[in-house]
Design a protein around this nucleic acid. Structure first.
Lengths: 149, 149
DNA sequence: CTACTTGCAAATTGTTTGCATGGAC
DNA sequence: GTCCATGCAAACAATTTGCAAGTAG
C-alpha cells in the first residue's frame, strides 16, 4: 500500500518510528469523508485497537499535522474543538450552517489570491490560512422565513 | 459620551443593565489598538477596578460579542486563546508572523466576495467569517535567508 | 539493545457555572 | 423592591505531560 510506504519514509525522515497506532489513525482520516475531532478519531480507532489511549491519539494527530499529512480545521465560531481531515482532500474551505450544523465545502481561488497579493505587496511568506464561514444554508433560511410569516 | 449612551441603549434593548464593569471593559477594547485576550483585558481593567473578577470579564466579553460591539479573533494556527477587538476597527483580517509574532492587518474585499459568490450560488446566508493567516513577515524571511547562506 | 512510543493517571489551561451578596433601575 | 450582575470558588472540557513499561529498528 502506497500510503503506508510514504508514511513510513516520512516518519523515518523525521527520526520517528512507524507504529500500528500511527498507521491506524492516519488510515481513519484518509478513508473518512467526515471531519473528525480527536475524540471521534479515538472512538473509531479504539474499535480496531481496544487498548489505544487518547493521549496517543493527540500525540499522533500532532505529528501527522507537523508532517502535513492532515489538516487542522475549526468550524463555526466556536473553536474550542479541533477537527482534522486528510490533506488528500485538496484545497477547500468550510461553511457551517448554524441551523442544521451541516458543513458545506467551499471552493474558491480567492483565498490564495489574497495571499499572493499580500505577499507581492509586503514580501511576507504564507505558510497557512485558516478560514471558516458560518451562517444559514438555503433550506434553513427558507425555514426561518416561513416561521416569521 | 456617545459610546456610553449607545452601549446603554443596546444593553437596555437586550434587557440588560449598564454597569461600571461593562463600561470599563468595552472602553478598554475601544481605546486600544492591540488585540487582547480575556486575561489581558482583565489585567488592564483590574488596574482601574481592583476587585473586578475574571469571571465578570468572560461574561462581559460574551455579551459584548453577542451584541456585536466586539469581535472575537484567533491568531496563527493555535486557537486555544481567543482575542478580542472592538468592531469600530472596520473590516480586516490578520496575518501573524511566526518569527517575530507581529500581527499585520490585511485589507481585502476578496473575503466578502467569496461570501457573496457562495450566497448567490447556494442561497446560503453568511453571518460570520473567521479568517487568519500565518507565515513569515518580510524581515523574518530575510533573516532566515541570511542564516541559510 | 537503544531510543522512541505507548498507556496510564495526574496536571494544565482557558473558560464556565452555582450560589449568596450586591447594585441598577 | 425586583431582578439582573458580580465576586468567589469550585467545576469543566479539551489537551498535555511525567513516567515506567513496551516495542520498532
Amino acid at each position: 500500500m502506497e500510503g503506508k510506504n510514504s508514511l513510513e519514509s516520512q516518519l523515518r525522515a523525521a527520526g520517528r518510528r512507524m507504529t500500528p497506532q500511527r498507521i491506524l489513525i492516519l488510515s481513519i482520516l484518509d478513508e473518512t469523508g467526515d471531519h473528525l475531532d480527536a475524540e471521534e478519531v479515538y472512538r473509531r480507532a479504539k474499535k480496531l485497537n481496544s487498548n489505544l489511549n487518547i493521549a496517543t491519539v493527540y500525540r499522533t494527530l500532532g505529528i501527522l499535522k507537523e508532517m502535513d499529512l492532515i489538516e487542522q480545521r475549526y468550524f463555526a465560531r466556536d473553536h474550542s474543538i479541533e477537527y482534522y481531515e486528510s490533506v488528500n482532500k485538496g484545497e477547500h474551505y468550510h461553511f457551517t450552517c448554524l441551523g442544521c450544523r451541516k458543513i458545506i465545502e467551499v471552493e474558491t481561488p480567492k483565498i490564495l489570491q489574497v495571499q499572493q497579493e499580500f505577499s507581492a505587496l509586503t514580501g511576507a511568506k504564507f505558510t497557512h490560512a485558516c478560514v471558516c464561514f458560518e451562517g444559514y444554508c438555503a433550506s434553513c433560511v427558507d425555514e426561518e422565513e416561513n416561521l416569521t410569516l
